[in-house]
C-alpha cells in the first residue's frame, strides 16, 4: 500500500490548521510548529483535530490519540493510523 510521504502529510495538516484559522495562510508553518502556540482557542484546537480526521479519513479522538503538540507529532499519529488501516488516507474532505 502506498502510504503518503511525510511532507505531504505535513502539508495536509497545515491545510487543516488553516481551514480553522484562515489568517494563518501567511504564517509559515513547519513540522516543529506547536499547534497550541498558533493563538488558537481551545475549541479551535479541537476543530483542527476534527479537520485532520476529515482530511485523512482517520479516527483520532475515539482512539485517544489527540495528545500531539507539534505538527510532527500529529504526523506520527496520522502515519500510525494510516498504516494500521492500510489506507492511502484520502478522506472525504481530501476527495472533494
Amino acid at each position: 500500500m502506498n502510504i503518503l510521504d511525510s511532507s505531504e502529510i505535513d502539508e495536509r495538516i497545515f491545510k487543516a490548521i488553516r481551514k480553522v484559522k484562515p489568517s494563518l495562510e501567511s504564517v509559515p508553518l513547519t513540522p516543529s510548529t506547536r499547534i497550541r502556540d498558533l493563538g488558537l482557542e481551545s475549541i479551535e484546537v479541537l476543530t483542527v483535530v476534527f479537520e485532520m480526521e476529515e482530511e485523512f479519513n482517520v479516527s483520532i479522538v475515539d482512539q485517544q490519540l489527540d495528545t500531539f503538540r507539534t505538527v510532527e507529532e500529529a504526523r506520527a499519529v496520522v502515519e500510525k493510523l494510516l498504516a494500521k488501516q492500510g489506507s492511502p488516507g484520502t478522506g472525504a474532505a481530501a476527495a472533494s
Partner: peptide
C-alpha cells in the same frame, strides 16, 4: 445522510 458520526466541535457554540 452521509452517516458520518463525528460532529464539528464548533457545532454547539
Amino acid at each position: 445522510g452521509e452517516k458520518r458520526l463525528r460532529c464539528n466541535p464548533m457545532l454547539v457554540p
